[in-house]
Design a protein around this nucleic acid. Structure first.
Length: 471
RNA sequence: GGUCCCAUCGUCUAGCCUGGCCUAGGACGGAGCCCUCUCAAGGCUUAAACACGGGUUCGAAUCCCGUUGGGACCA
């Protein structure tokens, strides 16, 4: 068996969306598993809608999710001569013919056919004419087979049979000299020696139109695989109104690319009951026969869960690295730069169980920067009350006697005071929590003190007492 | 309209090819309980599905036929 060559061929008409990433991902996984080649090809023949910014966005998105390509990016607009050359070859071989039908004529004939209950395809008027060299406007049409069947053994859907009698003589070169989509794809896939064409199943009915072109051109026909679509919660095709569809929007919302990849690959593919996969496992375990045949609904809640899983289990130093730019962007530039990598990692461990995204984490982590905190007024009102001031002072006095912070020691000291005062743990813990973090919800109190260190813990306790007494 | 594709809990899915191990398993989300200094995390428990109808068979989620319902493409 020759080397596997697959491709991802997006149109640069906007950002890289989630569905595109998943298609690319399946191709990439297969290429890596088979030690094959993954090619990036930009289908920009529709010049009215294609932009360079979109190409940049595609490249940026692919890089973020770590889908590296071995060849390309190729641009179809740079390959126009190839399409024209091969179109002429088909003409010479007698597999194509010039068509001088005007588009208005075609439209009226199509409507007539429809009215008679016939299929609205091209009636083949110019096929018999055999125009050698047309004067004026002419499009080149492919002589599609009119009898027999085209059979596709799809990697995902299995055997699919199409009657050739339904095939149109489709235009391969427009009168303006530009190739049509179906033609340029075939020429590229053939010339790039693509062995497996894997794309969205919205292309399924294009396939029997393309196969005869491969054959007419004298190229081997690749294997095909058609991936089911991704749907929104209302079962309609995923679009903007279902929320973010751009892959980079998820980066901005604080998602980890590994979580994104893991979620997307599980959307339509499975390996038993396993949910979490390392990239290496994905490469090893991926297989076409476990790709689902039916469309899948994109579930943001499960994605969120998966992101939280990755936040909890990734090395803290790695999460800290991801967090740094976000912290700097959140107005903590100087503080972040002053912090040591170890302390940052310690912070990540402190809050990672409660952050589902990196943006979440920024919020959780903010109170531990700087000497003092800003208080949440609700919480102050509820817990930092004047009646609490004396006992907080007592606690402060005892803590001050310790020359340095030892978690176990301080915790024992704290609990002893609670007991002496006949209080419940929570009665003292909450006011202290607000003093230290400014909020009523935080990680464990003594873990917080550990991250803060002796000096800042004492300082914040003092400030808290001042607030409680109303100073 | 024509052609093609698809159909297991609300969602992602296992099981289907190679019928019995399925009183249908896992995950997300939901509900409840436990743990607990708050918020989480975690643990345990729980509700929830084989689209429908016919066959084939001792036996069907699994094989066959049909119906219904979704979707894609062609315009």
């Amino acid at each position: 068996m020759s080397q596997v060559r697959v491709r991802f061929a997006p149109s640069p008409t906007g950002f890289l969306h989630i569905g595109g990433v998943r298609t690319a991902l399946f191709n990439w996984l297969y290429a890596r598993q088979q030690k094959g080649v993954f090619i990036l090809r930009i289908e920009d023949t529709d010049q009215s809608r294609s932009t360079d910014e979109s190409i940049q966005a595609i490249v940026e998105g692919m890089k973020w999710v770590g889908l590296d390509w071995d060849e390309g990016p190729f641009r179809q607009t740079e390959r126009m001569d190839l399409y024209r050359g091969h179109a002429m070859k088909l003409l010479e071989k007698g597999c194509a013919y010039w068509c001088v039908c005007k588009s208005e004529e075609l439209e009226t004939r199509r409507k007539e056919a429809e009215a008679k209950g016939l299929s609205p395809r091209y009636d083949g008027r110019c096929r018999a004419l055999g125009i050698a060299s047309p004067t004026g406007e002419a499009a080149l049409r492919f002589k599609a087979p009119q009898e027999g069947q085209t059979v596709i053994d799809d990697l995902i859907k299995g055997k699919i049979v199409f009657d050739n009698s339904v095939l149109d003589d489709l235009i391969i070169l427009r009168s303006n000299g530009y190739p049509t989509y179906n033609f340029s794809v075939v020429v590229d896939d053939a010339l790039m020696n693509i062995t497996h064409v894997v794309r969205g199943d919205d292309h399924l009915t294009n396939t029997p139109r393309q196969v005869p072109i491969f054959e007419a051109l004298g190229f081997p026909v690749p294997r095909f695989g058609h991936l089911p679509m991704i749907l929104g919660s209302d079962k309609a095709r995923l679009s903007k109104r279902h929320g973010a569809t751009s892959i980079m929007a998820y980066k901005e919302m604080g998602y980890l690319s590994e979580a994104m990849v893991n979620y997307l690959v599980r959307l339509g593919w499975s390996h038993g009951d396993q949910e979490i996969f390392t990239r290496q496992e994905l490469i090893e375990k991926f297989s076409w026969d476990h790709v689902q045949k039916s469309a899948a609904v994109f579930n943001p809640e499960k994605l969120l869960w998966m992101n939280a899983e990755y936040i909890k289990t990734s090395p803290p130093s790695r999460i800290a690295q991801e967090l740094i730019p976000l912290l700097e962007g959140a107005g903590l530039k100087d503080e972040t730069r002053a912090a040591s990598p170890d302390w940052l990692a310690q912070l990540v461990v402190l809050v990672r169980e409660r952050a589902k995204t990196l943006t979440d984490m920024v919020m959780w982590v903010t109170p531990y920067f700087g000497q003092t905190v800003s208080y949440d007024e609700e919480s102050v009102k509820k817990f930092l009350t004047p009646t609490m001031a004396p006992i907080l002072s007592k606690l402060l006095a005892r803590f001050e006697k310790f020359p340095s912070f030892f978690k176990q020691e301080w915790e024992e000291c704290f609990k002893k005071l609670v007991e002496e005062e006949g209080m419940k743990m929570g009665q003292l813990a909450q006011p202290v929590r607000v003093a230290l973090t400014g909020r009523a919800a935080s990680p464990g109190l003594f873990e917080v003190m550990e991250v803060l260190g002796r000096e800042r813990t004492l300082l914040r306790l003092r400030k808290g007492i001042e607030r409680a007494t109303g100073a």
